[in-house]
Protein backbone atom coordinates (compact mmCIF):
# COMPACT_ATOMS: atom_id res chain seq x y z
CA UNK A 1 0.00 0.00 0.00
CA UNK A 2 2.78 2.41 0.97
CA UNK A 3 4.44 1.66 -2.33
CA UNK A 4 1.39 2.71 -4.33
CA UNK A 5 0.96 5.85 -2.25
CA UNK A 6 4.56 6.71 -3.06
CA UNK A 7 3.98 6.13 -6.79
CA UNK A 8 0.89 8.32 -6.68
CA UNK A 9 2.84 11.00 -4.86
CA UNK A 10 5.65 11.00 -7.43
CA UNK A 11 3.14 11.28 -10.27
CA UNK A 12 1.40 14.09 -8.43
CA UNK A 13 4.66 16.01 -8.15
CA UNK A 14 5.28 15.68 -11.87
CA UNK A 15 1.74 16.90 -12.60
CA UNK A 16 2.09 19.83 -10.22
CA UNK A 17 5.41 20.92 -11.76
CA UNK A 18 3.94 20.64 -15.27
CA UNK A 19 0.82 22.58 -14.29
CA UNK A 20 2.95 25.29 -12.68
CA UNK A 21 5.09 25.72 -15.79
CA UNK A 22 1.99 25.83 -17.98
CA UNK A 23 0.35 28.44 -15.77
CA UNK A 24 3.48 30.59 -16.15
CA UNK A 25 3.59 30.22 -19.96
CA UNK A 26 -0.14 30.85 -20.16
CA UNK A 27 0.36 34.07 -18.23
CA UNK A 28 2.96 35.13 -20.80
CA UNK A 29 1.04 34.20 -23.95
CA UNK A 30 -2.61 34.88 -23.06
CA UNK A 31 -2.32 38.69 -23.24
CA UNK A 32 -0.38 38.45 -26.53
CA UNK A 33 -3.09 36.23 -28.00
CA UNK A 34 -5.98 38.48 -26.99
CA UNK A 35 -4.09 41.62 -28.07
CA UNK A 36 -3.31 40.16 -31.48
CA UNK A 37 -6.93 39.11 -31.91
CA UNK A 38 -8.17 42.56 -31.03
CA UNK A 39 -5.72 44.24 -33.39
CA UNK A 40 -6.76 41.87 -36.18
CA UNK A 41 -10.45 42.67 -35.63
CA UNK A 42 -9.83 46.42 -35.53
CA UNK A 43 -7.87 46.28 -38.78
CA UNK A 44 -10.54 44.17 -40.46
CA UNK A 45 -13.26 46.59 -39.40
CA UNK A 46 -11.32 49.46 -40.93
CA UNK A 47 -10.92 47.51 -44.17
CA UNK A 48 -14.64 46.77 -44.38
CA UNK A 49 -15.87 50.29 -43.61
CA UNK A 50 -12.94 52.62 -44.34
CA UNK A 51 -12.41 56.11 -42.97
CA UNK A 52 -14.53 55.53 -39.86
CA UNK A 53 -14.34 55.59 -36.10
CA UNK A 54 -15.95 52.63 -34.39
CA UNK A 55 -17.93 52.60 -31.16
CA UNK A 56 -18.96 49.39 -29.48
CA UNK A 57 -22.71 48.98 -29.00
CA UNK A 58 -24.89 46.13 -27.88
CA UNK A 59 -28.52 45.10 -28.08
CA UNK A 60 -30.90 45.87 -25.20
CA UNK A 61 -30.47 42.41 -23.64
CA UNK A 62 -26.72 42.65 -24.38
CA UNK A 63 -26.75 39.24 -26.10
CA UNK A 64 -25.36 40.73 -29.30
CA UNK A 65 -22.69 43.36 -29.70
CA UNK A 66 -21.70 45.27 -32.80
CA UNK A 67 -19.80 48.37 -33.84
CA UNK A 68 -21.25 51.60 -35.19
CA UNK A 69 -19.08 53.22 -37.84
CA UNK A 70 -19.01 57.01 -37.77
CA UNK A 71 -17.36 58.85 -40.63
CA UNK A 72 -14.09 60.45 -39.59
CA UNK A 73 -14.62 63.68 -41.57
CA UNK A 74 -18.39 64.25 -41.78
CA UNK A 75 -19.48 62.62 -38.53
CA UNK A 76 -22.42 60.81 -40.14
CA UNK A 77 -23.09 57.14 -39.57
CA UNK A 78 -21.45 55.04 -42.27
CA UNK A 79 -22.90 51.72 -41.14
CA UNK A 80 -22.33 48.88 -38.74
CA UNK A 81 -19.80 46.09 -38.34
CA UNK A 82 -20.41 42.80 -36.57
CA UNK A 83 -19.26 39.19 -36.48
CA UNK A 84 -21.48 36.32 -37.59
CA UNK A 85 -20.81 32.69 -36.82
CA UNK A 86 -21.96 29.51 -38.53
CA UNK A 87 -21.07 25.84 -38.58
CA UNK A 88 -19.44 24.76 -41.81
CA UNK A 89 -18.26 21.33 -42.87
CA UNK A 90 -15.45 20.90 -40.40
CA UNK A 91 -15.28 24.10 -38.37
CA UNK A 92 -17.01 27.14 -36.98
CA UNK A 93 -16.75 29.91 -39.54
CA UNK A 94 -16.53 33.46 -38.21
CA UNK A 95 -17.25 36.25 -40.65
CA UNK A 96 -16.75 39.95 -40.06
CA UNK A 97 -19.49 41.86 -41.88
CA UNK A 98 -19.85 45.55 -42.65
CA UNK A 99 -23.28 46.89 -43.62
CA UNK A 100 -24.45 50.40 -44.50
CA UNK A 101 -27.32 52.20 -42.80
CA UNK A 102 -29.81 50.52 -45.18
CA UNK A 103 -28.43 47.15 -44.09
CA UNK A 104 -26.88 46.38 -47.45
CA UNK A 105 -23.62 44.50 -47.20
CA UNK A 106 -20.60 46.75 -47.84
CA UNK A 107 -17.96 44.05 -47.51
CA UNK A 108 -17.24 40.84 -45.64
CA UNK A 109 -14.16 38.98 -44.52
CA UNK A 110 -13.79 35.49 -43.08
CA UNK A 111 -11.75 35.84 -39.91
CA UNK A 112 -11.76 32.28 -38.62
CA UNK A 113 -12.30 28.95 -40.36
CA UNK A 114 -10.78 25.50 -40.77
CA UNK A 115 -12.63 24.15 -43.78
CA UNK A 116 -11.24 21.57 -46.20
CA UNK A 117 -8.25 23.03 -48.07
CA UNK A 118 -9.05 23.33 -51.75
CA UNK A 119 -12.81 23.13 -51.19
CA UNK A 120 -14.50 25.02 -48.36
CA UNK A 121 -11.35 26.98 -47.61
CA UNK A 122 -11.87 28.83 -50.89
CA UNK A 123 -14.26 31.00 -48.88
CA UNK A 124 -11.16 33.05 -47.97
CA UNK A 125 -10.67 34.29 -51.53
CA UNK A 126 -11.37 37.92 -52.37
CA UNK A 127 -13.59 36.76 -55.26
CA UNK A 128 -15.80 35.03 -52.73
CA UNK A 129 -16.04 38.11 -50.52
CA UNK A 130 -16.95 40.24 -53.52
CA UNK A 131 -20.10 38.21 -54.18
CA UNK A 132 -21.64 39.59 -51.03
CA UNK A 133 -21.10 43.29 -51.69
CA UNK A 134 -24.30 45.27 -52.21
CA UNK A 135 -26.67 42.46 -51.21
CA UNK A 136 -29.45 42.98 -48.71
CA UNK A 137 -31.24 40.51 -46.46
CA UNK A 138 -33.62 39.20 -49.13
CA UNK A 139 -30.79 38.30 -51.54
CA UNK A 140 -28.60 36.66 -48.92
CA UNK A 141 -29.37 33.06 -49.83
CA UNK A 142 -27.26 30.60 -51.80
CA UNK A 143 -28.41 30.05 -55.38
CA UNK A 144 -29.86 26.63 -54.52
CA UNK A 145 -32.13 28.35 -52.00
CA UNK A 146 -33.15 31.05 -54.48
CA UNK A 147 -30.60 33.73 -53.60
CA UNK A 148 -27.68 35.44 -55.31
CA UNK A 149 -24.69 33.68 -53.75
CA UNK A 150 -22.96 31.10 -55.93
CA UNK A 151 -21.76 28.02 -54.10
CA UNK A 152 -18.00 27.38 -54.04
CA UNK A 153 -18.30 23.61 -53.59
CA UNK A 154 -20.71 20.93 -54.81
CA UNK A 155 -22.09 20.30 -51.37
CA UNK A 156 -22.69 24.01 -50.59
CA UNK A 157 -22.04 23.42 -46.88
CA UNK A 158 -19.54 26.23 -46.35
CA UNK A 159 -21.29 28.78 -48.56
CA UNK A 160 -24.65 28.13 -46.96
CA UNK A 161 -23.22 28.37 -43.46
CA UNK A 162 -21.60 31.75 -44.17
CA UNK A 163 -24.58 33.18 -46.07
CA UNK A 164 -27.20 32.09 -43.54
CA UNK A 165 -25.18 33.31 -40.58
CA UNK A 166 -24.79 36.75 -42.16
CA UNK A 167 -28.48 37.00 -43.02
CA UNK A 168 -29.59 35.96 -39.55
CA UNK A 169 -27.19 38.38 -37.93
CA UNK A 170 -28.46 41.28 -40.06
CA UNK A 171 -31.99 40.51 -38.87
CA UNK A 172 -30.78 40.57 -35.26
CA UNK A 173 -28.94 43.84 -35.88
CA UNK A 174 -32.09 45.43 -37.33
CA UNK A 175 -34.12 44.36 -34.34
CA UNK A 176 -31.50 45.60 -31.91
CA UNK A 177 -31.36 49.01 -33.59
CA UNK A 178 -35.14 49.42 -33.71
CA UNK A 179 -35.43 48.44 -30.06
CA UNK A 180 -32.63 50.84 -29.15
CA UNK A 181 -34.28 53.62 -31.14
CA UNK A 182 -31.01 54.37 -32.94
CA UNK A 183 -31.44 54.45 -36.68
Amino acid sequence: MMYYAKLGFILLIFCAVAAGILAYVNGLTAPVISQRKELEETQTRQQLIPNSDFTLMSSADSSFSFYKAIDKSSGTTNGYAFISEGTGYSSRIKTMVGVDTLFQVLAIKIIDQAETPGLGAKCQDQAYFDMYAGLSETDLFVDKDGGKIKSITGATITTRAVTNSIREQIAILKKALIAGGDK
Binding site: C15, A18, A19, L22, A23, V25, N26, A30
Partner: peptide
Protein backbone atom coordinates in the same frame (compact mmCIF):
# COMPACT_ATOMS: atom_id res chain seq x y z
CA UNK B 1 -8.52 25.71 -19.94
CA UNK B 2 -4.83 25.69 -20.77
CA UNK B 3 -4.58 22.40 -18.88
CA UNK B 4 -7.08 20.80 -21.28
CA UNK B 5 -4.63 18.68 -23.28
CA UNK B 6 -2.73 17.40 -20.27
CA UNK B 7 -5.84 16.61 -18.19
CA UNK B 8 -7.63 14.92 -21.08
CA UNK B 9 -4.74 12.63 -21.94
CA UNK B 10 -4.22 11.71 -18.29
Amino acid sequence: EYLQTISFIL
